[in-house]
Design a protein around this nucleic acid. Structure first.
Length: 212
DNA sequence: ATCCCGAGGG
DNA sequence: CCCTCTGGAT
């Protein structure tokens, strides 16, 4: 993708969706952190189904700890990777209380020190909860960055750095959600919907012509 | 590089 | 059946 097309790319996505937001359901910074931790390799629909039950009983680190491992698993067992996620979530809750007064810390170092929280999850929390100019690269953004030519890279970190360097400052705040929603609904993994893609003319990807 | 791991879509 | 889903730890 040519540098001049990057502005067009984001202006077009913005016009279609002026105020993009996460589709995860949460009502506090703690719930955001927990929901994102649970969302690894899972759809937001399945995560929301589980967190509706979980957060009704455990909206705080203290209440989450009180549930215990089996209690947490009972609520999230419909999500993939549920055993490791339950374990990580509980240990994270313990550390939030022990190190951070039961609050979610605002620094990358403190966030990534929590089990189950890596660079991507930390970036989401820093951006969405604290308004920091970070850009979390998930499976969608990694694919969209490479496929479109907007931000090619062999690893998520490489794509993230390329995006931070190419996305105009005015779009950085919401770029994460525009890219993720574009990847989820239009630039899909298996069958990208290029025929109704608003940014197809500035995209490097050319789909195979359909069979007659 | 491998493991974790359920639900939904094609 | 196979692939994908807002990854992270070992």
């Amino acid at each position: 993708m040519k540098p001049a097309d990057v502005e067009t790319f984001f202006a077009t996505l913005k016009a279609a969706n002026p105020q993009p937001a996460s589709e995860l359901v949460y009502s506090s910074v703690f719930e955001l952190l927990a929901a994102v931790l649970l969302s690894a390799q899972a759809t937001d629909v399945s995560v929301n189904k589980a967190t509706r039950r979980l957060f009704a009983v455990a909206p705080s680190p203290q209440r989450m700890l009180a549930l215990g491992l089996d209690g947490v698993i009972e609520h999230i067992k419909t999500i993939g990777l549920f055993r490791s996620k339950a374990k990580h979530l509980l240990e994270t809750c313990r550390l939030l209380i022990e190190r951070h007064g039961g609050r979610v810390p605002r620094s990358r170092e403190a966030l990534e020190a929590l089990p189950g929280v890596g660079r991507k999850t930390a970036n989401v929390v820093l951006n969405v909860a604290f308004g920091e100019p970070t850009l979390a690269v998930d499976t969608h953004i990694f694919r969209v960055g490479n496929r479109t030519g907007l931000a090619p890279g062999k690893t998520p970190l490489a794509v993230e750095l390329k995006l931070l360097q190419r996305v105009p400052a005015a779009y950085l705040e919401d770029a994460h959600h525009w890219l993720i929603l574009h990847g989820r609904y239009v630039c899909q993994a298996r069958k990208p919907r290029c025929w109704d893609c608003a940014v197809a003319d500035v995209c490097d990807f050319r789909p195979k012509p359909p069979r007659p």
